[in-house]
């Protein structure tokens, strides 16, 4: 039974609990061009995210999805519009919106433990040294890196590096986690394992997550809603797809449901359609 695709669109406002934790209001991002004009990358984006909600942003490369994430993270400024987190406007980077970077961004002169400790020292500076040490140890254990704790990043595989990135992000107890294609640089097997690990952690301790991805399966597996962006320039939110599966999710079970394939096809069709329009 294939539902009409129109049913999937924009049903999000009715689902789930309050979605006013993160509010993205009329955000537009434009870059000046050399000949005096401007390129509008993001055009009037409006989006609300709930306190315990895992959302994915999906779109073709160049659609500005990473830019949107960086604006929420404060690393880039919106040309107009505003971002509100828990009722307060955000204009700068802040540790309550911690990033997980696509290329890990670990400091190569510090060990795994020291990388995480640096973040803890910086953000949780009210803790005693003993408590800080415990926070670091907990998070190293959480991503199963006990054996590699004293290693330097260039001694680690890509998957291990990203686990350090995730541990570093979670250790400082952010209100919201921003992930910029966190599994994009990993091989397929490692990616699957790490997705499971991140989902486990999130299912145990839910919080707001905003993840940029270009992988429909990853978005369906992990997130509660999928924000599908149209192609840039002038990228907008094309459609918002609710993912109705209960957590904890098991990939095998998801794949046995026809709804999974309906959603998957719908998302792929959306992407295809916007791809062909562009050419």
């Amino acid at each position: 039974m294939i539902k009409p695709t129109a049913n999937f669109a924009n049903t999000s406002q009715t689902a789930n609990s309050p979605k006013e934790f993160l509010v993205i209001e009329n955000v537009t991002k434009a870059y000046p061009t050399p000949n005096g004009g401007e390129t509008v990358v993001l055009d009037d984006i409006n989006l609300n995210i709930g306190e315990n909600e895992y959302i994915s942003i999906i779109g073709h490369s160049g659609c500005g999805k990473s830019t949107l994430l960086k604006i929420v993270g404060g690393l880039e400024k919106a040309t107009s519009g505003s971002i509100w987190l828990g009722g307060r406007e955000v204009r700068k980077p802040g540790a309550e919106r911690m990033m997980v970077f696509q290329h890990y961004s670990l400091l190569p002169w510090l060990t795994v433990r020291e990388n995480i400790r640096l973040a803890v020292d910086e953000v949780l500076d009210h803790l005693s040294p003993a408590d800080k040490k415990q926070v670091v140890n907990e998070h190293i254990a959480m991503v199963n890196l006990n054996a590699a704790a004293e290693k330097y990043p260039d001694e680690l595989s890509g998957g291990m590096k990203q686990r350090v990135g995730i541990a570093r992000a979670l250790a400082i107890r952010p209100k919201m986690l921003l992930m910029d294609e966190p599994f994009g640089a990993l091989d397929a097997l490692t990616r699957g394992r790490l997705q499971r690990q991140v989902l486990d952690i999130w299912e145990n301790q839910r919080q707001a997550v905003m993840m940029v991805t270009h992988d429909v399966d990853e978005a369906l597996y992990m997130s509660d809603r999928i924000i599908m962006m149209t192609n840039g320039p002038h990228a907008k939110i094309g459609e918002i797809l609710d993912v109705p599966f209960e957590h904890p999710r098991v990939l095998k079970e998801l794949r046995s449901q026809s709804t999974y394939y309906d959603l998957r096809n719908h998302a792929l069709n959306f992407l295809d359609q916007h791809f062909s329009q562009d050419d």
């Binding site: 980077p93 540790a95 970077f101 400091l107 953000v123």
Partner: peptide, 26 residues
């Protein structure tokens, strides 16, 4: 690398500590 500076900015590291803890070792 801008990536390292971005880490420092997200962690809200003051400028002088960025110099000591990020830029100097890098």
């Amino acid at each position: 690398s801008k990536d390292y500076i971005d880490v420092a900015r997200v962690l809200e590291m003051p400028r002088w500590r960025q110099v000591l803890k990020i830029i100097l070792p890098a």
